[in-house]
Design a protein around this nucleic acid. Structure first.
Lengths: 333, 333
DNA sequence: CTGAAAGCGCTAACAT
DNA sequence: ATGTTAGCGCTTTCAG
């Protein structure tokens, strides 16, 4: 491996000069500059970022902790973050927590040990003390998709999104309302979506009976399929079902259709998130669109701001993005 | 930030002792061990991986360069690689090239500067000299999904996969054969798939006329949609179309259906890869399944082997995984 | 404009 | 079992 010392030796100059030349410092002669660059190129010199970052005490790397790669939701968010930070000379490191608190802690610790300049994350919320600690220790932190008191958060207005579904179902003639939820204990976005939905039903003199809230324990398509199995066993079935994510909706509808149920004729279905590939599905789902790219942009910009000028008088109020209802075939669109 | 020096000072011992205690070295007294661990925990000590890696001259991090996050193909591969390497104490860093040679080079250079222990990648193949250089310079390298002479490669038997589609179409009564390809210049898997397909047609006295090979210039669903537009304009249309990837097939079928074309009645379609979510699509695509998880496992194991015992007498013959035909509705399944 | 010296935080001989 | 010393590769004062 060739180092600046090798270059210095061959050129008969000091490592300092080489270092300066390599960084394009104004303090070296153009001639020296050229000779160093040339030899560096010729020797295929590769700067050691570990050494550089160690002395500079900054890595210009930001960590992004997502829930799982298997969720297409994160694709546009990743893209946005990469676009923003790369333009500003940073790079991104992505890891997944699988919604497990142990994995979450492990990854965050790893980010910290790697001395990342800042972190964007979707926390499980099962335990947030160590997040507060991390932040207090000076690590710039932006929470995405959830709201965590005391931390910078960018999310969507889930309650309003729930309202949109409720109003939509009421408008399209729904009479008996149900829901499919993962039921994970710390899934606050889910609870908010349901509460918005429920509030609308109540306001219209309807209700969301407990027996029609299918709690599946799973967040992927499998969860939706489990819910469908329960729906099929019912004597009296809801005719409008809000699944709190598109993935739940996809699994739910798939299992129903396999059992011969007509959608939306027998039951109207709506999801949430508007994940990629929705338009190609067997039943394109009515959904509440999450401005995913924008989410990533805002999170990245906010984080870079925190990194580059640690101004303590920034508002910590959560930023809530606007949901948007997209009506598709699953609810008669 | 607290360092081992701080701990050493407070305990009245030397940094070496702290270092040893933290690593659980057998050479420190249990008593010392305990005291160090305790204080470290209490001070919320976080080891600086940059410093550690710098002196150890190893990061135990492996870089994985994919084409794009937007392609669900990579999800199981990522999962496999993470599973394998994490179990062996390594971590993974993932970046995307967007199929651009400049991005590919930039990412690989970055991996190298970060001193990753090894790299798994899907190269664009537009230029492979610098890959050979990188390997020659001692960087363990495993190529995935393509075959590159002189490098360790794990891929699928694309030709055989193409055969499977050809045979299938012939068996289901296809008469006029077409194809949808991205047509990207260095996309060798695509060429191989087509050549296998074509060979089968020829052997059966059929052909794949140039005019029915839709070259779209795009690799995503958009490519398929562009191809569909051209299919629709034809006077005489092929009744069996092989799309070299599922994403092309999805876009192709979607655009056709929107134009009222019946699949598979008017045209049978097949894809390749068997990406996640296929079973939920409007027309579940007949496809050639790529053992994606296995691909990741083999690549990771091979790389770790190269890293941990740099044995030069390992065969560099490409490992070709077995494709498997999955017949679904798009071809009448 | 360039060099010498110090040090980032940690580990690893080599002592003792 | 612990301390001392040296150094990983690089940047950055401080001198000149």
């Amino acid at each position: 491996m060739t180092t600046i010392r090798d270059i210095a030796l061959q050129l008969g100059v000091s490592p300092s000069t080489v270092s300066r030349a390599l960084q394009g410092s104004k303090e070296v002669s153009p001639e020296m500059q050229r000779r160093v660059q040339e030899l560096a190129h010729q020797l295929n010199y590769t700067p050691n970022l570990l050494a550089r970052s160690l002395v500079k005490a900054r890595t210009d790397t930001i960590g992004f902790l997502i829930l799982e790669f298997a969720n297409p939701f994160f694709i546009p968010v990743i893209q946005a973050i990469e676009d923003v930070v790369q333009a500003r000379g940073y790079s991104v490191m992505i890891s997944q927590s699988h919604r497990q608190i142990e994995d979450e802690k492990r990854v965050l610790k790893h980010f910290e040990m790697l001395q990342v300049s800042g972190i964007i994350l979707i926390p499980t919320l099962e335990e947030t003390d160590y997040l507060a600690d991390l932040s207090k220790r000076g690590m710039p932190l932006v929470v995405v998709g959830r709201t965590t008191p005391g931390l910078a958060c960018i999310s969507i207005d889930n309650i309003k999104g729930g309202h949109m579904v409720g109003r939509h179902f009421l408008g399209t003639g729904g009479k008996k309302f149900g829901a499919v939820i993962s039921g994970e204990p710390f899934n606050t976005p889910e609870s908010e979506r349901i509460s918005g939905y429920q509030a609308d039903l109540k306001a219209a003199g309807r209700s969301l009976p407990e027996k029609w809230v299918f709690k599946t324990g799973r967040s992927g398509t499998t969860g939706g399929e489990l819910a469908a199995a329960r729906w099929l066993k019912l004597d009296e079935r809801p005719d409008a079902v809000f699944c709190t994510t598109d993935r739940l909706a996809i699994g739910f509808m798939h299992a129903l259709r396999r059992a011969g149920v007509e959608i939306p004729a027998e039951v109207a279905v709506a999801g949430f998130d508007d994940i990629p590939f929705s338009e190609y599905l067997e039943v394109p789902p009515t959904t509440v669109a999450y401005p995913k790219y924008q989410l990533g942009v805002l999170a990245a910009e906010r984080l870079l701001q925190m990194i580059e000028d640690p101004d303590p008088d920034l508002s910590m109020d959560p930023v809530l993005l606007e949901p948007q209802l997209i009506v598709r075939k699953s609810s008669g669109g």
